[in-house]
């Protein structure tokens, strides 16, 4: 456990959509009501915040009493499902103003849901979202590729990655392929 004296903000992990989609394992670090909730990413790191840049392709307003917005953000590997409700009014209003399609940068918390049919879904609860440009998207792909590869290089040597191995049976080579494919979609 970290010392309580100095608060350290959780970093926003870089993760591709196809990796986040595979995420199933969630845990709480500590017994406190306010202890942070993490997911273990298949590449072997805990995360309670992620940073993604992609194309917002669709957004929808939902709910009558409790209004919230859902959106789809696409990266070279797949789709992130994002949502912003009235508990995040700033984020919700930011999302409401953005007209798809647009390149967006999203900072948010990964959340796991189990549907009544028993399927596990991962969504991203938006903390902030902003319109960016293509260059930022490309930079994000490079950044995410680098950090994913760093995690894969350390796979098996850290506690989080051992947990990932246990939960997902991660095959690092499969994820290297995903990273490679994502990179090939960036235009030179």
């Amino acid at each position: 456990m970290k010392p309580q004296s100095t608060f350290e903000r959780e970093p926003a992990r870089r993760v591709f959509a196809s990796e986040l989609r595979e995420t199933r394992y969630q845990f709480k670090d500590g017994d406190d009501e306010k202890s942070p909730t993490y997911v273990i990413l298949p590449s072997g790191i805990r995360s309670n915040r992620i940073f993604v840049v992609g194309t917002l392709t669709e957004k929808q307003r939902q709910g009558d009493q409790n209004i919230f917005y859902r959106g789809r953000v696409v990266d070279p590997t797949g789709t992130f499902f994002i949502m912003a409700g009235s508990y995040q009014p700033e984020a919700m209003q930011q999302l409401a103003r953005i007209e798809p399609p647009a390149f967006v940068a999203v900072v948010g918390k990964p959340n796991l849901y189990t549907t009544p049919e028993g399927n596990c879904l991962v969504s991203v609860r938006v903390e902030s979202i902003a319109v960016v440009d293509r260059e930022t998207r490309d930079l994000w792909v490079l950044d995410t590729a680098r950090e994913t590869l760093d995690r894969l290089d350390a796979f098996g040597t850290t506690d989080d990655s051992k947990k990932a191995q246990e939960e997902y049976g991660t095959q690092p080579d499969l994820y290297r392929k995903i990273v490679y494919d994502a990179l090939t979609q960036v235009q030179l």
Partner: peptide, 11 residues
């Protein structure tokens, strides 16, 4: 950087 990362991912 893209080239370097492609090399790294491609192995």
């Amino acid at each position: 950087e893209l080239a370097a990362l492609l090399n790294r991912a491609g192995g």
